[in-house]
Amino acid sequence: MTLTIEQLLNAMWQDYLALTPDAKPIHQLFADLNQGIVVNDHIALRTFNLEKVSLDKIAKSFIEAGYQTVDDYQFPAKKLFARYFQHPDETLPKVFISELKVEELPQYCQEIIHDLVSQVPEESVSQQGFCYSGRPWSVTKEQYQELASESEYASWLAAHGFRPNHFTVSINHLSSHSNIESINQLLQDKGYTMNTSGGLVKGSPDVLLEQSSTLAKEIEVSFTDGVMKLPGCYYEFALRYPMPNGQLYQGFVAASADKIFESTDTKPSP
């Protein structure tokens, strides 16, 4: 059965909630303050740059639903390439997909990742729901820890597989709050831990985008040789500013996204 784009996005949301204990109460908090309306600015997905599970493969379901490529981004320090996609229907969230440049990691990490991806059935990647299908491989705690020593991104992906890494509340569509500082204060007052890497607010009006995010809470993850408590997913908040033509900026800011990635790190940088 082919899902509509709305059904696909809802299925991704349900999968995300299972890995993000904070998401449902935060969503409800803003729904209660905004007549039930909370608009999602964008969804982010992660993958490796290996042919079988490449960014293009992950994007396929969105492209087929009418999404179009808008822009590319490079994150040299984290060895990532990313691309974002937008739908002509502006009520649908943007989709931000990143991929890890496996060849830039040490050889032992490359071998682990190639081993994991070799376990992915070729036919499953072409399924519409692959982007929220979870972890399609067996992985040990040792493999996870070896990847984590070089790339938090790689270890998160090895542990959780293919699924939304975060959803994003559009502050522009909230009637209850008009600035990101008040959003952050509300969340902190409610006891949520925020990502302070690069500052509580990433970006500025000058770059037409401000972002903040919760820190991913730890959840239990099963490995072939036991269970570990690891960061799951996080919730982001974005405020977009108008460009000279009056339209809201729709892109992303690489320097800010670089710090947002650290919302799933076991030890985010100061």
Results as ranks from 00 to 15, higher is better:
residue 108 Y to F: 09
residue 166 H to R: 01
residue 168 T to D: 08
residue 133 S to H: 11
residue 105 L to S: 01
residue 159 A to H: 05
residue 168 T to P: 06
residue 108 Y to A: 06
residue 94 K to A: 10
residue 141 K to G: 05
residue 66 G to Y: 02
residue 145 Q to F: 13
residue 115 D to P: 00
residue 117 V to F: 09
residue 83 R to W: 03
residue 78 K to F: 09
residue 87 H to F: 12
residue 82 A to R: 01
residue 65 A to M: 04
residue 83 R to H: 08
residue 131 C to D: 03
residue 96 F to P: 12
residue 96 F to V: 10
residue 183 I to D: 04
residue 86 Q to F: 08
residue 157 L to Y: 07
residue 94 K to W: 02
residue 178 S to N: 14
residue 158 A to K: 03
residue 174 L to A: 07
residue 90 E to P: 04
residue 164 P to R: 11
residue 109 C to L: 02
residue 124 S to W: 10
residue 69 T to A: 11
residue 98 S to Y: 06
residue 129 G to I: 04
residue 126 S to K: 13
residue 101 K to Y: 07
residue 74 Q to D: 14
residue 120 V to I: 14
residue 112 I to L: 04
residue 119 Q to H: 01
residue 98 S to W: 00
residue 178 S to G: 09
residue 89 D to T: 09
residue 148 A to T: 00
residue 118 S to G: 14
residue 65 A to H: 15
residue 146 E to M: 12
residue 132 Y to M: 08
residue 135 R to Y: 08
residue 192 Y to T: 05
residue 131 C to P: 03
residue 153 Y to V: 11
residue 79 K to Q: 13
residue 77 A to S: 12
residue 100 L to H: 02
residue 169 V to F: 11
residue 114 H to M: 01
residue 184 N to T: 13
residue 159 A to K: 05
residue 127 Q to T: 07
residue 121 P to T: 08
residue 176 S to M: 07
residue 187 L to F: 05
residue 117 V to S: 02
residue 193 T to N: 15
residue 180 I to T: 11
residue 97 I to S: 03
residue 113 I to V: 13
residue 162 F to C: 07
residue 129 G to V: 00
residue 165 N to S: 10
residue 97 I to N: 01
residue 193 T to L: 15
residue 84 Y to R: 09
residue 84 Y to M: 07
residue 92 L to A: 08
residue 139 V to G: 00
residue 143 Q to A: 04
residue 118 S to A: 15
residue 173 H to I: 00
residue 123 E to T: 11
residue 91 T to V: 08
residue 130 F to P: 01
residue 103 E to C: 06
residue 82 A to V: 02
residue 165 N to W: 07
residue 168 T to V: 09
residue 133 S to F: 08
residue 91 T to D: 14
residue 135 R to M: 07
residue 84 Y to N: 10
residue 76 P to M: 06
residue 72 D to C: 03
residue 82 A to P: 00
residue 148 A to C: 00
residue 150 E to C: 13
residue 144 Y to R: 00
residue 151 S to Y: 04
residue 91 T to F: 08
residue 100 L to S: 01
residue 186 L to N: 11
residue 123 E to R: 10
residue 176 S to C: 13
residue 195 N to Y: 12
residue 110 Q to R: 10
residue 99 E to A: 09
residue 103 E to K: 13
residue 117 V to I: 14
residue 90 E to W: 12
residue 103 E to G: 03
residue 132 Y to W: 12
residue 90 E to L: 15
residue 71 D to W: 06
residue 173 H to D: 15
residue 163 R to C: 08
residue 126 S to A: 13
residue 74 Q to S: 14
residue 191 G to T: 08
residue 134 G to D: 03
residue 195 N to M: 11
residue 85 F to V: 01
residue 103 E to S: 14
residue 158 A to I: 06
residue 106 P to W: 03
residue 106 P to V: 03
residue 110 Q to F: 04
residue 196 T to N: 14
residue 98 S to C: 09
residue 188 Q to V: 14
residue 67 Y to G: 00
residue 163 R to T: 11
residue 176 S to I: 09
residue 100 L to A: 01
residue 94 K to L: 06
residue 175 S to E: 14
residue 123 E to I: 10
residue 129 G to L: 08
residue 193 T to D: 15
residue 96 F to W: 15
residue 99 E to S: 10
residue 66 G to W: 00
residue 156 W to C: 05
residue 91 T to G: 09
residue 90 E to M: 13
residue 152 E to Y: 14
residue 146 E to A: 13
residue 160 H to T: 05
residue 109 C to D: 09
residue 65 A to K: 10
residue 136 P to L: 10
residue 195 N to H: 12
residue 88 P to T: 12
